[in-house]
Design a protein around this nucleic acid. Sequence first.
DNA 1: AACGGGTTCAACCGCGGTCCT
DNA 2: GAGGACCGCGGTTGAACCCGT
Length: 294
Amino acid sequence: MGRSPCCSKVGLRRGPWSTKEDTLLSNYIQQNGEGQWRSLPKNAGLLRCGKSCRLRWMNYLRPGIKRGNISEDEEDLIVRLHGLLGNRWSLIAGRLPGRTDNEIKNYWNTHLLKKLKTAGIHPKPHKDLPKPTKNKKPAVGSGGGKKKKKPKKTEKLTTSANGAEDIGNINDRNGSEENINSNDPPKTKVYLPKPIRVSPVFQRTSSYDSLVSGSSSTEGGSLGAEKAPEVASYVPVPCPPLFEMEDADYGMCGGGDDFLGVGCILPVLHQQSDSISDEVNMWEKVYDEYLQLL
DNA sequence: AACGGGTTCAACCGCGGTCCT
DNA sequence: GAGGACCGCGGTTGAACCCGT
């Protein structure tokens, strides 16, 4: 039943892509479109796993990919979105046209994390959040990257994944052991649509604008029209729970062990209102917008 | 110039959810 | 409905690169 195996991985190339491979992949996708990753390598004449082709295309070859030079504006948005979404890199990337989840993830880990720490802020995982149901084996390291040589590494268990805070995975949460054990809330199935990438013509949303400007307007502004980025500082901001559902506690900012200890700590532009309630309203707008996005 | 430690980022792995037979 | 393959995501790795000594 089911389908035939994806790819045996036997005799497939690994490691960095050559320009020839890039060309083959690009040409094939331009002619035949994305998708069919399984059969793509064979059809395109590549000795690569379909998964590898997809990754290469999505993170590097896809048209419109911006590389490097993440602006202050983008950086600010990443921090805000991370506060809202946690390590949902694909969702965050969806709000940053031309940026890939991999790039944002790398940028967060290498730049922003450091930046926040030096600012005395220590973002910590939402360990209190219920984990998705799953018995991940205690792994010890996942596969490893390689930029060049080094043919191998076959198995290494992985420690991976457990850092993911997955606030969005409501379905999983409802089924988590924690919830089952604790008072057994009725299982409310919430269907979350798949994340989608926004069009390259990114429109900064009204909520974002209001965050940035302090305005409560709901009329949209575009990214292009944004004001010059203000110097942001990172201050604790009480924010409303993201998901007020039957078994709440999904709020990134709720619960005791929240994102940064005392509520969300997110960059707040100096010019915006000092009023905490205004900020809460802004967050509610962001939350509404996020729900609409979903 | 050589060396060593730190940083960056492309690419890998494993897993969960979805789709297909 | 069951079983298995596929797709996409997030965490991790490690070679290349950078920079100070």
